[in-house]
């Protein structure tokens, strides 16, 4: 009951924070730590706006009790670029207009980066034709299915896929590094 002292690595920095045991990772990031880049769109795992990376894997931070993720390495949208330089995917989102209002964007970005790693690790999707293949044959349908956990009500879906397509190779190099 009550509060607990919790430890995380967030965007490469060690963080210690006292928070309500009921706090979701999302609320902890937004309300306790000021990482407001991660967004709340439904608080029920139905929109993907809260997507962050935990040890490189994408999850919905709204469904994650923070207390359960202690000791893990969490990357939010604030941690994607470096020293004022945009991550190539961030740049591609701007170039391809992969957003309008920008509210689902942090989740889309983290999700796409997590997706790149999943493809690199040959994790299939429901539209993958050959489950026994050694690597994922990436096409637009694969990207669309794999990004379907991130709703965009403005309807920037085309730009999102274009931005990811253009950047996928670079993201996978990043994941291998």
């Amino acid at each position: 009951m009550g509060n607990a002292l919790m430890n995380f690595t967030i965007n490469g920095q060690s963080v210690e924070v006292e928070a309500d045991i009921r706090s979701s990772l999302l609320d902890l990031l937004r309300n306790s730590l000021g990482f407001t880049g991660t967004k709340k769109g439904c608080d029920q795992g139905a929109c993907g706006a809260c997507t962050v990376l935990v040890d490189g894997e994408r999850i919905n931070s709204c469904l994650a009790l923070a207390v359960q993720y202690q000791g893990r390495s969490i990357t939010t949208v604030e941690g994607l670029g470096s020293d004022g330089t945009l991550h190539p995917l961030q740049q591609a989102f701007v170039e391809h207009d992969g957003f309008q209002c920008g509210y689902c964007t942090p989740g889309q970005l983290c999700s796409a980066i997590g997706m790149a790693r999943e493809i690199e690790r040959n994790i299939p999707s429901v539209v993958t034709a050959d489950l026994s293949a050694d690597s994922v044959a990436v096409d637009e349908t694969e990207l669309r299915e794999r990004m379907s956990g991130n709703l965009c009500r403005c309807g920037a879906y085309n730009g999102i896929v274009e931005a990811i397509s253009e950047t996928l190779g670079k993201m996978q190099e990043g994941a291998r590094a």
Binding site: T36, L86, V94, T105
Partner: peptide, 20 residues
């Protein structure tokens, strides 16, 4: 390209619930 684009993709655009 959207002039506020870089802010939005970095999560720096502050929405209504994000003012301390």
């Amino acid at each position: 390209s959207r002039i506020e684009g870089p802010l939005k993709v970095q999560g720096k655009a502050r929405f209504a619930a994000e003012f301390p």
